[in-house]
Computed example of a mutant assay.
Amino acid sequence: MDKFLKTVIIGAASGAAAAYFLSTEKGKEFKAKLTKAYQAYKQEPEHYQQTAKEKAAEYSQLAVDTFNDYKEKWQTGELTKDDLLSAAKEKAGQAAQFANEKVNEVKKKYYADDPSDAAAEDVTAEVDDIIIDYPETDDEADFSDTEQNQSETEEKQ
């Protein structure tokens, strides 16, 4: 019952947020664009469905190609554990910076009336520890499961 109540509260909060957004000027513009897009979809649904299928296949192939590229670099030694860790830290830092900027923008808009409010101060998320499980030795780094899954996927196609 507790889980159901939480679900209802989250749903109500989401609905209230959506209603508020749609009542703003940007929300009205978004709603108008969405209505136009829906009308266009109703006239040619097969075209939009085909386009969606093509995009999904395109992104799927891109993901497979990217994975194979990284796998090949890992096996040849071009890519090391340190490279992976530094790339992960860089991406995490970028994500934290983006999140900080968005949170601070919202806070500044929300607390614009009372800048002395303590909650209006800038929020800064810090990325200190990134934990990545990787094998201790290169011998343990076995991609055989991945290769097997990929070959099964190719057979199904």
Rank of each mutant, 00 (worst) to 15 (best):
S14E: 12
A92Q: 05
D142F: 07
Q157H: 13
A19W: 08
K89Y: 12
T80N: 05
W74M: 07
E136V: 06
A19E: 08
V64R: 12
E126M: 05
A96E: 01
K31S: 06
D69P: 01
K3I: 04
K36G: 01
A56Q: 12
F4D: 11
A37Y: 09
Q148S: 15
E44H: 15
F98L: 14
I9N: 04
P45T: 04
D139R: 08
K53C: 04
A87W: 13
N68V: 07
A141Y: 09
T51D: 14
E25R: 10
Q148V: 05
E54I: 11
D113L: 14
V106Y: 11
L22F: 15
G15A: 11
T35K: 15
P115H: 07
S86W: 09
K89N: 13
K53L: 08
L79S: 02
D133A: 04
A120T: 04
Q43I: 15
A57K: 14
A18V: 14
G77D: 08
I132E: 03
V127Q: 02
A95W: 12
A13V: 15
A95D: 12
F30N: 07
Y20H: 08
G11C: 02
F143C: 04
K71Y: 06
A56P: 00
E78N: 11
K91D: 14
A40F: 04
A118R: 11
E25S: 10
S14Y: 07
T153C: 03
Y134A: 00
S116M: 09
D2W: 15
A13L: 15
E78P: 03
G15R: 06
A57D: 10
A92C: 08
D2K: 14
F98W: 13
K33C: 03
E78F: 06
D2T: 11
K107L: 07
P135G: 01
Q157A: 08
N100V: 02
K91F: 10
K33W: 06
A37G: 02
F21T: 00
I130Q: 02
A19I: 09
D82W: 05
D83V: 03
E152K: 12
Y38G: 03
Q157W: 10
K26S: 12
Y111Q: 03
P135E: 03
F4H: 09
N68D: 11
I132W: 02
T24V: 06
D65M: 07
E154G: 00
K71R: 15
P135L: 01
E29Y: 08
N104E: 02
A56C: 07
L85P: 00
A95N: 14
I132L: 11
T76N: 14
T35A: 06
G27Q: 03
Q75W: 09
L85R: 09
T35S: 05
E105D: 12
A120E: 00
P45G: 01
Q39H: 11
I10D: 08
V106M: 07
V123M: 02
V64S: 07
A52E: 10
K53T: 09
E90Q: 14
T24S: 10
G11W: 05
Q50V: 09
Q94E: 15
D122K: 07
Y38M: 05
A95K: 09
A13F: 08
Q61M: 10
Q50S: 11
V123F: 05
K55L: 13
A112M: 10
A88G: 04
I9H: 05
K3D: 02
L22G: 04
Y70C: 01
V123K: 01
E101A: 06
A141H: 06
E46Q: 15
Y134S: 01
T76S: 14
I131T: 15
D142P: 03
